[in-house]
């Protein structure tokens, strides 16, 4: 036995989706986390709640509205059509956009917590030592909040690997384009190919376990506590 070509394509697609989503989320999520960690604005609550919505929403609900928004008559869809790139549903990049929303809280919250726990003082000290805001971010915040970024990247990646409902709503089930591992497993089970389903499912279990193991043992924050 082992993996069929279709299985391998699904694995590769999943890893690519999760990788790109994680990188995008670190870029998009960091400023959001920074703002949430440091703002005194009244918008902190509403924005924080919106970011956290995917934690509690059924993925199908999220996927349904994303589908509408990105569809030909949705605002995002109108915009992408105006750009001349068509509509996003049932494409790989549609999945990426959906995954970014879906995994957002898993990236934003660890970074936000890490920045909050830094407090004002290191930033103030850096300012009195002539470091501007960007300089401070890269030479003080990033090194000191590294455990938070590490956790964010791993959780964002793992959570994207595990998504199912959103993918079905946005991407459907197009081999090599939108058929990720979780959907492939579903297909195997539908077709009563339990052995094939086992291979992929067990791989997911092992993968998830290894990811969490890495999180708990490699994370500098937990390691420091043990030392």
């Amino acid at each position: 036995m082992g993996f069929s070509d279709a299985d391998l394509a699904a694995i590769w697609l999943t890893l690519r989706l999760a990788g790109i989503t994680t990188v995008l989320l670190l870029i998009i999520g960091t400023p959001i986390a920074w703002w949430l960690a440091r703002t005194r604005s009244n918008w902190k609550g509403p924005v924080g709640a919106v970011v956290a919505l995917p934690l509690v929403l059924p993925p199908t609900v999220l996927g349904f509205y994303l589908l509408l928004a990105m569809g030909p008559n949705g605002p995002v869809g109108q915009f992408t059509q105006w750009l001349g790139i068509g509509t996003l549903p049932f494409t790989f990049w549609g999945l990426v956009v959906a995954s970014v929303f879906y995994s957002m809280p898993f990236v934003v919250q660890p970074i936000q917590n890490a920045i909050e726990s830094l407090g004002e003082r290191p930033l103030e000290a850096a300012a009195t030592l002539r470091a501007g805001p960007w300089d401070t971010f890269f030479t003080v915040v990033l090194p000191l909040a590294r455990p938070g970024f590490f956790t964010a990247a791993i959780l964002g990646f793992a959570h994207t690997v595990g998504e199912f409902g959103v993918v079905l709503m946005i991407g459907g089930n197009i081999p090599g384009v939108t058929r990720v591992v979780s959907v492939q497993i579903y297909d195997h089970v539908e077709a009563l190919e339990y052995a094939e389903a086992h291979w992929l499912a067990a791989t997911m279990v092992i993968f998830s376990f290894l990811v969490l193991l890495a999180l708990y043992t490699l994370n500098p924050a937990t390691r420091r506590k043990q030392a």
């Binding site: 103030e124 000290a125 850096a126 300012a127 009195t128 030592l129 501007g132 000191l144």
Partner: peptide, 20 residues
């Protein structure tokens, strides 16, 4: 003028060294 453009030295109550 933002703090990082001011020619000053500041010593905080707690040393506030960068731990890294």
């Amino acid at each position: 003028l933002p703090t990082y453009r001011r020619s000053l030295g500041y010593v905080f109550q707690e040393a506030s060294l960068f731990p890294h």
